[in-house]
Design a binder for these strands. Structure first.
Lengths: 252, 252
DNA sequence: ATTTGTCTACTTGTCAGACAAGTTTCTCCG
DNA sequence: CGGAGAAACTTGTCTGACAAGTAGACAAAT
């Protein structure tokens, strides 16, 4: 077998990572306002009781993230509009409730991707989707873990949207999210038929795309993601807004 | 007041940035294969003729990008799936044709944001949108550059979507894109009425959001982005029907 | 022969101190 | 009052050192 990943025991976090996380949080929370100057490296190394090298590495990370800019002789400054330059998810945003928000973003982008894939897919891309689908089918039949094929399927759809940015973005979000996909494909999940249900939805999406019906593809993708959220026990803060919003137009 | 930008002169690149760029390119190009171990810091500092501290900062940047992982005592390794962990745009994508793809992504996400903002906006967020709108109005009247208020307006809408991820993503894409927004707000653009037209569209989006009409907000945002692309001479590869169709399905 | 324990060389993480280069601030002279 | 220049900071880079952790070899035990 592939000796799988995940150092189950959390290795002692590097000092520079801790310092970087604290500083990043202060910036995101607004404790360091945009445009403001950070304390000097000497000051920070004193505050955190670490060497200046550690502080410098932490700041290097923030610079790589596009959160701060430093000018020799002047200091390090919080960038005017933090968050531009790079988009990441995991860090510095309270963990609670985030999953639902990630799902909402997936819903938006993957539905759009499915619609476009229905209209633009090439034979090669369709074959890639079919291959991922077949592998998942096999996994369901054998009771194995098909999570990575699940990833592949979603990414193949995004690739077929014809817009590489959409493909990369879905790949990115999928990765960020793959840990939470486990319950569906765990032994227990397969036993309870979750994998089977997901697979049926996958096929519906695939057939809609293959037949070139954009609207059906979008609806199938939408339904799949809503159901997937339900299988994970995640509340997606969207349903009233997206699918059926014409219903509550009456009020107000 | 705020002495704004002046880094038009390419400031002397930091050594660590140069080294980091070279290493990053080697990884992206595959010269360092996924899973492979990087040369040791000592070896790299020798190769680049810089101190180990510089190499360490360069590697810190790569770690922040999620390209490499280092284990004390073992070495630094190229991550198995480079590119996961962060989402950037500038890298590894030639400039041609990309603008249209960015626009398509904006179209997808900002239309969805406008729909949600119509349903979820708070009074404070509405006020932020109104403020940005007013400043743009002023800029149009005075013939000044309102590009940054344009940014603010779009970001305020995304913020009001109630999903911070959407807000950050729009901020991210906006930034990546702000350079291309210049033509609308340049002296020539203002003269030719481009800014005026954009402003009318902005107001339409705002009013739809303020009135809580998600469908109208989505359509207005869709129209605005299509027109904005037209003003820039960019072709958005989106069939006219697609952008909003998942909203009004079921409507007769 | 296989397993186990130990040892050693190597690599990254952290520290301390130093100097160079650039910026800001204040002083002092005109 | 204004400007030149010195002084104080601050970041960028270098050097050397030690601690912590890893990997491979080697020896001992079963």
């Amino acid at each position: 077998m592939t000796l799988s990943r995940l150092p189950r025991i959390p290795r002692p976090q590097r000092l520079s990572e801790e310092v970087g996380a604290v500083l990043g949080e202060r910036i995101w929370s607004g404790a360091f306002a945009p445009g403001e100057r950070l304390p000097t490296e000497a000051r920070l190394s004193e505050e955190f009781a670490v060497s200046r090298a550690v502080v410098r590495e932490a700041i290097a990370r923030l610079k790589a993230d596009g959160l701060v800019e430093s000018r020799q002789g002047a200091g390090a400054f919080v960038v005017r509009r933090p968050g531009a330059g790079v988009f990441r998810m995991e860090r510095s945003m309270g963990g609670a409730g985030v999953t639902g928000e990630i799902f909402e973003l997936r819903l938006i982008i993957e539905v759009a991707a499915a619609e476009r894939a229905a209209l633009r897919h090439t034979p090669v891309q369709l074959k890639a989707m079919a291959a991922a689908l077949a592998r998942m089918e096999e996994a369901v039949a054998c009771g194995e873990d098909g999570a990575s094929f699940d990833d592949d399927f979603h990414c193949a759809i995004a690739e077929a949207s014809g817009n590489p940015l959409i493909g990369r973005f879905v790949a990115f979000v999928s990765q960020e999210f793959s840990a939470s996909r486990a319950p569906t494909w765990s032994a227990d999940g397969v036993f309870r038929g979750l994998a089977r249900a997901a697979q049926d939805e996958h096929r519906a999406v695939f057939e809609a795309i293959a037949s070139g019906d954009a609207e059906a593809a979008g609806q199938a993708a939408h339904q799949h993601l809503i159901n997937a959220a339900g299988r994970l026990g995640v509340a997606v803060p969207t349903p009233p807004a997206t699918g059926v919003q014409h219903v509550d137009k009456g009020m107000a």
